[in-house]
Design a binder for these strands. Sequence first.
DNA 1: CACCGCATGTAACGTGTTACATGATTCA
DNA 2: TGAATCATGTAACACGTTACATGCGGTG
Lengths: 174, 174
Amino acid sequence: MSVKHGLLALLCEGPRYGYELKSAFEARTGTTWPLNVGQVYTTLARLERDGLVARDGEDPEGHALYRVTATGTREVEDWWSQAVEREAPPRDELAIKLALAVGLPGVDARDVLQRQRTATVRALQTHTRKKKALPAGDTAASLVLDALVFAAEAEVRWLDHCEARLSRARNGAR
Amino acid sequence: MSVKHGLLALLCEGPRYGYELKSAFEARTGTTWPLNVGQVYTTLARLERDGLVARDGEDPEGHALYRVTATGTREVEDWWSQAVEREAPPRDELAIKLALAVGLPGVDARDVLQRQRTATVRALQTHTRKKKALPAGDTAASLVLDALVFAAEAEVRWLDHCEARLSRARNGAR
DNA sequence: CACCGCATGTAACGTGTTACATGATTCA
DNA sequence: TGAATCATGTAACACGTTACATGCGGTG
């Protein structure tokens, strides 16, 4: 839904062509989420099929323009007006992995925790570095990286919390 | 990848049949991620196609058992030994949405922030309530809910951070 | 009897990903 | 000239989701 609605939202600014949409999408997210061009075209094809966008001739340079339809506009407005659903949370691979790890005899959950913590801290550093390298004034990209930083920090906190829980359980068991 | 590896990991405990896997998976995650039975069978079919599991006769009650193969065992061991990749983060719909919102003229980013904050706080409450309702001693389920709580808290903090940034930008602009 | 939980699947679809094919333009 | 970037697509595939079909067994 992110790509689909993202492209749709960008098209609300005015007609664009495929490659332009890819660039715009990446620019807004500070290249945090590079977008394969192919996906832009397949997504546009699906949006066209569903009547949310329509081809709109060519620009002076001969690029195939797309514009958003009335239905598409409504769809975007709905998107803006509704919160991203986090109550029925998407399957979190890490949470599932650890939930299984603590219950399986052959797996050392502490090892899994350790490794994940190292990786997450490294990711945190990567995001921080990327943020510093950001051109000043790019609010959108800066906020995106902040989101990743906040999420990674929370993950580290959670991993430490898990560690503590497992240690307590271990000591309590003897 | 979560479901696939999750089922594989569960099968490492010993042969199981489809419905049993569904129950086990849900039990470990405290029913946080209910698993459609259909998906269990399609996933098992794909795992069988790829040689990671194999049919293993029937149990005394006539259930179609699956067991993990040598290749499958290796795959699971790899999974345990590798951290969940968060450096190339999955597309985060909320982050993308806000990154686009701050740059688009027709959209009030503060409104979007407000609505999202309300929804996230509500989700936080839901998770807390669910955690209280948990039977004592279910470590795995408890940790899963903690993960959601930590993530939601981080999201609220980030939303507030965004608000502050936007307010500053607004005042700085006049 | 009717309903529910257990049990095994199949079919169709949505989103996303990669790889490939093709051609124009620009630039060292 | 050769490489990189711009530009438009197609094909095949992975994962996940929902809905549907079908049958068994127990319980109110």
